[in-house]
């Protein structure tokens, strides 16, 4: 970009000191060169630092590497969560998803990486992410109200995951609970566990 500049710089410094009078800041070639050089010197380290800080988290996935793991018959992206016999047909149960986890420089085997609520709906397994689609707090199923309640901004959801309407207080969630894809093999229930952007009307995977 500024390959020509060093030459100018050389020629400028070879000139004799002709005068003491101050010219404008950028009035001489030396002034311009010094300003550009100074700018580059400041920007250089900053650019390298920013590059490393920005690119590292964007390139890497810190989410679990080994999806579904050892369970036989697991599909790509699915995690073994439960046996069919563990699901109730009315009350949703919370299940923890276990997988190997990497946190920066640490590798941890079999860690809880998230949780879901599941119940049987006829022959179908109904599965919801426990993260509230509003602002990312964790919802819990409350027996009294037979609804999912979020402890942060009053979002609430029916047992089928839809937004609970008609309550006295506001329900700021932009959508119902995020249903997750379920896949049953034999008696094993696998769930495609992924996170979604909160606060948006549409369910978009992160």
């Amino acid at each position: 970009m500024n390959e020509a500049k060093p030459e100018q710089h050389d020629s400028e410094t070879n000139l004799p000191h002709e005068t003491n009078e101050r010219r404008g800041f950028l009035g001489s070639a030396a002034g311009i060169t010094a300003a550009v050089l100074g700018g580059l010197l400041g920007v250089g380290p900053l650019a390298i630092g920013l590059y490393a800080t920005v690119m590292d988290p964007l390139r890497k996935k810190t989410t679990p590497q080994k999806a579904a793991g050892d369970a036989v018959g697991a599909k790509e992206g699915f995690y073994f969560v439960a046996q069919l016999g563990e699901l109730d047909s009315h009350v949703p149960r919370r299940f923890t998803i276990m997988a190997d986890k990497i946190d920066a420089w640490n590798f941890m085997k079999d860690q809880p990486i998230g949780s879901v609520y599941m119940r049987m709906q006829g022959e179908q397994v109904e599965c919801f992410h426990t993260t509230c689609p509003h602002a990312g707090c964790a919802v819990s199923y409350e027996l009294e109200s037979q609804a999912y309640q979020c402890p942060c901004h009053n979002s609430s959801f029916n047992v089928d995951g839809s937004k609970l309407e008609g309550g006295r207080s506001s329900n700021p969630s932009p959508r119902g609970l995020d249903a997750l894809e379920v896949y049953v093999q034999g008696t094993s229930v696998f769930v495609k566990y992924e996170d979604y952007f909160t606060g948006r009307h549409d369910k978009i995977a992160k």
């Binding site: 800080t53 988290p57 890497k60 810190t62 989410t63 946190d103 920066a104 420089w105």
Partner: peptide, 11 residues
């Protein structure tokens, strides 16, 4: 960028 990845952790 803020979280330093997709999950909360060391970063």
């Amino acid at each position: 960028l803020i979280v330093g990845g997709s999950d909360y952790g060391h970063f």
